[in-house]
Design a protein around this nucleic acid. Structure first.
Lengths: 143, 143
DNA sequence: GGATTAGTCTACCAATTTTATAGAGTTAAC
DNA sequence: GTTAACTCTATAAAATTGGTAGACTAATCC
């Protein structure tokens, strides 16, 4: 399951994507509208900033805004940053590969291909979910 | 990612599936061959037993064995028991449904359908992975 | 240039979950 | 009645998660 941190990050980013191009949005506003503890959100947004997803502006009139266009930010990237690997086993992870320490024989591992397939399918779906796609979907649903 | 408990459970079950019909297998033998801490495995097998996946026999010549045929035990069931929900969000879980406590509006939730699709694809792959299928695959790989 | 606003950084911490281990108890076989 | 093997209860270290406190820095506005 996704951690709260990850869910908070996604919702905050979608909120920012909706307001993309309209200047910085303050942490407090995002926290209030998305019901996220403010101090916790602070740390999350900072991390997203340090990982080139967000930019920030200090001082009066400051806040956070997307560093790239909503089309170029996908859930894949957000989940990897805030929740870790997409794969269910370390030995089939693209970005966080590790052999399972208890693994007796990785090549002949019975379950490896099953979880490789799951990873591939999951990645396919996630990479189609950019922030832009999510915002578009949301607008449609509201009609 | 899957917990060690879950990976241990899967590997132990595949081991038992290979020996299905040949009488009980002792915890110690499974633990040794799969590099699983024996005491931890004890607790896992007991839980699988209490959930109708395994049966056990006490005393000399005793051990654990599958309660059903390997065709009838799928990874879906094993993961749910030892790792929890398959879904990445509680609000799209079939067996562990809960609304996300921080959710502002579940019906119009931006990300719900994405994770619903992921759950469906994952379940499809997992349900095709019975213990029998895994054992069959393993034999093929060894050739 | 000082007051205010808003992000940054460091440190901390409680609760929960994970990954075990110890040891006494029970049952079955021989 | 001894031995082999599962069962049950208790305990606990380590890691992760979710969250808070407070001092610091930078930008704006008057």
């Amino acid at each position: 399951m996704l951690s709260k941190k990850c869910k908070y990050a996604i919702h905050a980013l979608v909120y920012l994507a909706e307001r993309h191009g309209k200047g910085p949005v303050q942490i407090g506003e995002i926290a209030d509208s998305q019901k996220i503890p403010k101090k916790f959100l602070e740390a999350i947004l900072l991390e997203l900033r340090n990982n080139r997803i967000l930019n920030s502006k200090k001082g009066k009139g400051g806040g956070y805004y997307l560093q790239r266009s909503p089309e170029e930010i996908s859930l894949t990237e957000v989940i990897r940053l805030t929740n870790g690997p997409i794969a269910l086993l370390p030995c089939v992870s693209l970005n966080f590969y590790e052999s399972c320490e208890e693994c007796v024989n990785e090549k002949n591992c019975t379950i490896r291909t099953t979880f490789l397939t799951i990873r591939d399918e999951t990645l396919k779906i996630l990479s189609e979910s950019s922030l832009a796609a999510l915002v578009k979907k949301q607008k449609k649903d509201r009609k």
